[in-house]
Design a protein around this nucleic acid. Structure first.
Lengths: 205, 205
DNA sequence: GTCTATATGGCGATAGAC
DNA sequence: GTCTATCGCCATATAGAC
């Protein structure tokens, strides 16, 4: 069941505002309004803006680097693993379309906020590298640099969220396309594109 | 030859600071210092921060949506066109690694800044869609949704710039990789990945 | 055109009553 | 724990001398 303590109300409000506007764009007053409390209470619970922001950032980071590592230890083919990863990742992001820009933009503003949070992150690229190399040995996936392959997959999943406002305007004004249709097809198209670049003789099924 | 009028010095300084820190993170004092002039002069030439920012944004937008449309009208194969696009685009961005985040982040903060700038942008996705469709008819590229294909190509080119600080830390701390090596190989790996997903029976050459 | 000095407002943070 | 009132700073913007 939901905890509706004051501290929790503040955190939820802060998540909403910080993720939308970033550390520098957010206003403590706006967060207080959103939480339905007074501005002074923010400082009572979190001392200052920086500390409140860090709480939101860490929570957000854990959410965007989801616990998907178990996908790669399951007993399924590499094709199914990649498929499942892409589907799960896009599904996780869909309810929080602001998260990717928030994380990347704040990481760029102040990379030091990453240091603490990376430890407890559940990112283990070394293990995935081993898996990919072994699958290449077996001929199950096309030979390529594993680091680039991982970045490629993540790029294709995340970029449409990052560029959403720009993409929507371009589609509407320059192509006469409905952005909703685009985003509805996105998961399937992403999966097929990746698998064509990765699986030998891949045919859509 | 270089124009070194005061107005130009201001614009160059503003580009540097705004692209690094964004509209909300930038300080008029810092821009004045960078330009080697007084803060009041900024207002003399550009009235207010918003107008100075818009000048920088429009200049930046034109730079990131480069005049690459002529690539698609050249008399070369579709494979060469895609190859050339990826190479040119990454090469254009390399001297300005902050540009992609600046454009996308500011577009999200206030999408209305896009309206004016999109008109004179040289983005003509409809023409590229026609080209892609015709190449699919001929069997030169694998059948897929042209809108997604265009987004995929741009995603793979741009994302590594957007995520650079995060990627560098992950590579150093979690993989023991040298980020420089990664970015040196990036162009070739991107090209091959895309061509495998697009060209029937593509073999690296 | 370029400067110094100053006005004006907003925001993070604190004091202190309840 | 929660509120009202207020402090102090900093950033944008303007006034006015040169």
């Amino acid at each position: 069941m939901e905890e509706t303590t004051t501290e929790n109300k503040i955190l939820e409000a802060a998540k909403k505002i910080f993720r939308q506007k970033g550390m520098e764009g957010a206003r403590m007053q706006e967060i207080a309004d959103e939480a339905g409390i007074n501005k002074a209470l923010l400082h009572y619970y979190f001392r200052n803006k920086e500390k409140l922001f860090l709480a939101v950032f860490e929570d957000s980071f854990i959410q965007i680097i989801p616990n998907l590592s178990d996908i790669f230890t399951q007993c399924i083919t590499i094709e199914e693993k990649i498929s499942l990863f892409v589907e799960s990742y896009i599904k996780i992001l869909e309810p929080y379309p602001d998260l990717p820009m928030f994380i990347l933009s704040e990481s760029r503003r102040d990379p030091s906020i990453l240091i603490n949070v990376l430890e407890r992150s559940g990112i283990h690229p070394k293990e995935i590298t081993l898996l990919l190399n072994s699958e290449m040995e077996k001929g199950n996936i096309i030979r390529q640099n594993p680091a680039h392959l991982m970045v490629n997959i993540v790029s294709l999943c995340i970029f449409p969220f990052l560029a959403r406002p720009l993409l929507e305007i371009v589609m509407l004004k320059k192509q006469g396309l409905n952005p909703k249709d685009f985003y509805n097809n996105r998961m399937a198209e992403t999966k097929d594109f990746i698998l064509r670049a990765v699986i030998p003789n891949y045919q859509k099924r």
